[in-house]
Design a protein around this nucleic acid. Structure first.
Lengths: 128, 128
DNA sequence: ATAATTGTATTAATAATATAATACAATAAT
DNA sequence: ATTATTGTATTATATTATTAATACAATTAT
């Protein structure tokens, strides 16, 4: 299921990488509403992590309403179709804001970014 | 000069807040190319910080080409150069590419991003 | 030349964060 | 009822990041 895409040499903490991977699975549609996730101990074994690390990821995902945890039974994906869009939008906007902040602090202008986007969307069109 | 806008209860480290404040001064135009900044020790006294904390902020700003430090004399704003630096442009593009990749993998479209950018550039215009 | 002022470098102390070890408590299966 | 499986809570350890103490070196002013 998870092609152990973890990078142990990255400065990004493992539990955050796990969160990110699962969010991607959900938002891309590979994991759907109601699907069961591996148990904490299962996933820990697969990824060769301490169960607490996985637990922390799951716990965070539950706080963000991505999944639901039930003691004794397991964890399930929990987003309603309607929620998905706003969720996705929120995530994209977060990413965008943080990119924009960086870009501006580096010295780029909004105009620069517009041009970049134009260039890339032209490429995108070509590649379809 | 700096209305001690530091928030010691914030999780954002002090030296980053200092960086942010100075960038704001520069990007807003209140500090202009060639202007002299307070010396490390001066600013440390004003903000009641350890000089090393200010030094770290200045050091980072110099690395990012926002200011120039000269031992024995002080620190000066050096924004114009930074803006024109093609190396910086490369950085922005790298950031952009990585943002775009993430956004697309989450499920956003180019159109979504265009709209976001429009929204933010409108805000930017309003705040000028 | 000398002294004062500046940024820099080195090291130590502290604080924050991430990970691990272990024990606990609710649910499910038998 | 009992046992195994699950998520949770508590505590300890390791790692990293931040801040501080101190000494150093280049520049400026006298």
């Amino acid at each position: 299921m998870f092609l152990s895409d973890l990078d142990f040499s990255s400065p990004v903490p493992i539990y955050r990488q796990v969160i990110y991977l699962i969010k991607l699975e959900i938002l891309s549609g590979r994991l759907r509403d109601g699907d069961q996730l591996p148990t904490i101990r299962e996933l820990a074994k697969i990824l060769k992590l301490n169960p607490n690390t996985v637990a922390k990821a799951y716990y965070t995902l539950e706080n963000e309403r991505f999944i639901e945890s039930k003691r004794g039974s397991g964890n399930w994906v929990n987003y309603k179709k309607a929620k998905l869009d706003s969720l996705r939008r929120g995530m994209v906007e977060d990413e965008f804001r943080s990119f924009l902040e960086t870009a501006l602090s580096i010295g780029a202008t909004i105009e620069d970014i517009k041009n970049l986007l134009k260039r890339y969307s032209d490429n995108d069109r070509k590649n379809r």
